[in-house]
Every structure is written in C-alpha cells, then in structure tokens.
Amino acid sequence: MTTSPVPLVDNAITASGRRKKKRAVAQPGERKSIGMHLLLAIAAIYFLLPIWWLVVAGSKTTQGLFTGTGGPLWFDKNFALFDNIAQLATYNSGIYLRWMGNSFLYAFAGGFGATILAVLAGYAFAKYRFRGRTVTFMILLASVMVPMTALVIPTYVLFNNLGLTNTVWSVILPSLLSPFGVYLMRVYIQDAIPDELLDAARVDGSGEFRTFATIALPLMRPAIVTVLLLSVVGGWNNYFLPLAMLSDQTLLPVTVGLNNWQVQSNSATAGGLIWNLVTAGSLVSVIPLIIAFLMLQKYWQGGLSMGSLK
C-alpha cells in the first residue's frame, strides 16, 4: 500500500489521497445509543455555555451586564450590540481596530514565517542524509519539551539591550521558532514523498531547489496547511510574549489589549467602566478564528494526528 517498507505515518490524510473508508457497512449490532447521546448533549451544553454567554454579553450595555433584564444568559431588553461595535471602533481613537490589526500581523507574519522554516527543515530531515542529521534531530525533539515561557524573560533582556523591545519584531521574531512544526513536517514528508520520485527528477537534470519547489512542495499541501493553521492560532492566542515585550498601547495584540481594558474596568470609577467593550471586543475578536476553523475542518481534523501516529 505504501512505497516504504516501514509505514511511518498511518493517518487519515496522505499525499496519495488514501483515506481509509471506515465502516462503510454499518455493523449490525450498532444502535444509536441514547445514553451516549445524552452524554454528548451535556458536553455540547458545557462547551457552548461560555460562547453563548459571550454572544449575549456582547449585546449588553455596561449597566445591562450588571442589572439587565433576562439574567446573565439571556438578552437584555436594551439590545446594544451595534452600539457596542460602533463604540469599539471609536473608543480611544479606535485603538481596538489597531489591536485587531496587530493580532493579524503577529499571527500571520509569525505563522507564515514559522511554516516556511518548518517546511524547509522538515524536508531536509526527511530527504537528505546529511552529516549530523541524527544528532540535530535528537536536539530538535528535545527542544519540543522546552517550555516556551522559559525563553521569554531572557529574550526580553537580550532584545532590551538591542533596543528591540516595544517593536513589532520583538513579537514576530521569537514566533518564528516552531520545533514541533518541523517535527510534523518531517513525519509527513517522509511518508508522502517517495525518494524515487526525487531521484527521478534529479536524473532528469532538475536541480535540488527546483525539485523541491516543483515536485515536493505540491505534495506537502495538507501538512503545510495544518502546520500553518497551528502556527497562526499559536500566534493569535499568544499572550505571555507580547505582554512582556510591549508597553506601547498602539502595538498590543487584541488579547493583551482586552485584558488591559478588563484591568481598567476593575479598578476604575464610573467613567472608566467599559465592561461592554470588554465583552463586545472579546466577541468580535474570536469570530475570525472560529470561521477559519470551520472552513478548514478537513485539514486540521486529519492533520492533528500527524505527530502521534507512526
């Protein structure tokens, strides 16, 4: 079935498009279990509850959040979602839009960069038997176990000495590091791209870079999308790194910005109470990623198992 004698990746997606047709024939004993569906229904309510709360809360005024009709889990009679969105766009000269833009910049610049590096490095590990490969790969595997937060404080001091803190680079550059992405790419490439294919291209006189770009790269697409998605999500959700690196309000990503608003509302008197902006801002900020995940379902559902199955 596979071209290699040792099947390394046996996951749902491979380059040959082999997708196991599972349970095409329903097992006779398989009945729709009521108990299991009940359990799933409880799970669905639990996992949906905060999101539902956010939708409701995003449509309330600050006063409505505390004393509104309908309680915390239903809409207030004063439906203020559009007022909140308008206020988001203008409060503090529209800083919320800046934060969203920054989040996009950090997530995509860091995510694309990390993915490109992971694709190249994964290809090197999978398809070249260069000197030191085994040792470098062992170091890479060990580095997956290094907690990224341990790197933030020394990186901050190093950047501070170079005058790089409080710049977009202080968030983007450390985000380029993704050892797990390299690992995923290697595992995938090893199985999905037969050596014979590359050798055939070489015999035909194709250079190493052309072989990579025209033969190998198109075959890696599912894994690239998965690694890209994971890196972009990692960048979008990042909190510790920008919190440490940035103090300029106009450079913050939306995660840090919203938390600053929360802190402000917690300690402020009536004038600074912007709980409605905290909730509406949170609601607006989670929409892009949820949509991305719904649209890219087939990639992450198969791709996430890449690292664990061999």
Binding site: A44, P50, V233, L258, S282, A292, F293, Q297
Partner: peptide
C-alpha cells in the same frame, strides 16, 4: 458536538479566562 468541543481551542486563553471569570 465534535466541533463544539473543539471550538474553545480557537479561543485565546485570555478570552476563555475572561468569559469564565464573568
């Protein structure tokens, strides 16, 4: 349900904590 259980992964930890905090 599978989708619903997975959705929190797409929500930043900060916002998850804020929501549950409320």
């Amino acid at each position: 349900t599978r989708l619903l259980i997975f959705v929190p992964y797409a929500i930043p930890g900060v916002i998850g904590a804020l929501m549950w905090g409320f």
